[in-house]
Design a protein around this nucleic acid. Structure first.
Lengths: 352, 352
DNA sequence: TTGTACGCGTTATCAT
DNA sequence: ATGATAACGCGTACAA
């Protein structure tokens, strides 16, 4: 077995280990000729430096980590791509770590910080419910991106950055738009209230009614099924099918799902019930992912500015690392994109 | 800064470092009382062992890695979930590594093998075009899963395992089905020929015609756009829009896309051209991902048995690691799922 | 420009 | 059951 190490290379080249190390790391003070020779031997032998040993020793690894909770959420795939590009453009190494649902993302971050000598961390997805003490243990700058960090006091917020859209406001925007179309009984399919994002979006929904001095139709507020993936189309489908069988389902003229994936599932349930979209029931989503443009009918949604958000996330993190900036809370405006899945109320029996 | 280490804990507890190590790793020969005390101090201090140091020293890490090329491919998200569950069920640690498009997955594997002391590797996605010499450098068992490994001799195949469906056969199945509906001018949207999977699927398409003693409509064979993500809906959309403007587009009565994502894009292009699915043009996909069931119309597709494949991938890998099994080439049967997006030819001008 | 020797934080081996 | 100490493979200060 005998793993081949830097010593073997040194011996084979008749040089010291440090010279090999210098060759590997492109150190300035090394004879290019000896370097060439060493690299040749490395090539031949197929020697690969051990990263664990490197990380242990190195102090200056320009490396950041992105921790993603819920990789199945299609909203992230776009984000990740841009984050990769941006990180690379800035000559930073990137550790992309998928956090499994049973893991705690901060624990993972703590581990990774030691293991890889990180300079900064991005948290993508998951809920924000971390104790301040735990967060305080992180020794490098970190950012929560596209996570609803609600109800935190300013003191805590100074310890990290936050990139997001105003979920409450955007949610209100969507609801107001639906109301403006004449809808009164708008069902909302929301993330469970334990999730801050879910809560904020429901609050926005409520606000829209309240600002019109209309009573909030509480029976129209539905939550996703706990036991299955919260972002799956299946969840939207199952939830809306149940809804359609209920009393609230009879009255509703519009469905507002708090993610596009849920909305697609909702559409299927509506279609299967023999109703038309949007003639019988309007359906709207949230996120602005690719499928919304391609679905039939095209999905009305709240489009988050993913590209800008991803770029700002990395940009700000690197600025904070470099000491060029302080931690910030940045809210990006999202866009109400009206497409084909929503329309004016036509149902006559809608009002009771 | 002063990173807190195992020595600090030892000092603070008044014990030796080895005792702390034993406590951390749940070693059998340690007094439970001292262990409890040590763990308490660890808890208090927030000490986290450095993984790099651990990996460097450890010899028996029960750990496998899954390398995914093309994480944006929705076909994988399902697979990954099951792989995670299976790995955990077998008490193995899992390193999920996203391989960026400019990286070589075998290089990454080589690095990771040293860094993490891996016991086995799974390759998911990407094309199979690795030199045997390079693969030979991998010292642990590895499996290619859901990757078309075509045209390899048996000698090479004994060095690793392979889990896949018979892309040529399944592709033929789909084409034969479309032909049986009366379609003659079936456009195929395929991965570029450099990709073995793409090639196999086109071969299956050709075979279907040949077995019916019909000439293959070469002008109906389209490849995805090189410059954008090969699995994106956008690619399907752009490709089919171009196709529709061409001469071949006038004649075609069916489109068979070699992934569901492409098929969805194709549908949008067809719809936008004012044609109905399947009345004017039938559209079929390949993969059997979730969106196909929810799209409108529901997508006819070749459904790969993801769950079985994922389970077998991990099962076989662990068996090979344990010496219970030899490397194998396993072909799973896929299923032609007929849904709403395909139907009999109705177009009269179809035959020229 | 190059080589020697030490240390990174941990686990394994060997005493005790 | 526990402690001292030698590795693990590499980077780097220092000496040459």
């Amino acid at each position: 077995m005998a793993e081949i190490t830097i010593k073997d290379i040194a011996k084979q080249c008749g040089v010291g280990v440090s010279t090999v190390s210098r060759a590997l790391n492109n150190h300035p003070d090394i004879n290019q000729e000896t370097r060439r020779k060493i690299m040749e031997v490395i090539e031949e032998t197929g020697f690969i430096p051990n990263n664990s040993a490197r990380n242990l020793k190195r102090t200056d690894a320009k490396c950041i980590a992105v921790l993603i909770k819920g990789i199945t959420n299609p909203f992230f795939s776009n984000m990740i791509q841009i984050i990769e590009e941006e990180t690379q453009r800035n000559k930073y190494a990137l550790v992309l770590r998928h956090v499994e649902s049973h893991e705690d993302e901060v624990d993972v971050a703590l581990e990774l910080e030691k293991e890889k000598r990180l300079r900064g961390i991005v948290f993508l997805g998951g809920r924000f419910n971390h104790s301040e003490e735990k967060l305080a243990k992180l020794n490098v700058p970190f950012i929560f991106s596209t996570i609803g960090v609600a109800g935190l006091d300013h003191a805590a917020k100074a310890e990290f950055s936050n990139i997001a859209v105003d979920d409450r406001l955007e949610s209100r925007k969507m609801t107001e738009y639906l109301i403006s179309l004449g809808h009164r009984n708008i069902a909302i399919i929301a993330e469970r209230p334990e999730n801050p994002i879910g809560r904020l979006r429901v609050e926005g929904y409520r606000e829209a009614y309240q600002r019109q001095h209309m009573t909030v139709p509480e029976e129209m507020i539905c939550y996703v099924q706990e036991e299955m993936n919260h972002y799956s189309m299946e969840n939207g489908y199952v939830t809306v099918r149940k809804l359609l069988e209920s009393e609230a389902g009879e009255k509703m003229t519009a469905i507002y799902a708090s993610s596009d994936a849920l909305a697609i599932g909702a559409c299927r349930a509506v279609l299967e019930a023999g109703k038309r979209i949007p003639e019988d029931i309007s359906v709207a989503g949230y996120d602005g992912i690719e499928i919304g443009e391609y679905y039939n009918p095209k999905l009305t949604t709240i489009k988050q500015p993913v590209e800008m958000m991803a770029k700002k996330t990395i940009g700000l993190l690197l600025d904070v690392i470099a000491g060029r900036e302080e931690h910030q809370q940045i809210i990006f405006p999202a866009e109400l994109v009206v497409r084909e899945s929503t329309g004016p109320v036509t149902k006559l029996c809608g009002s009771d």
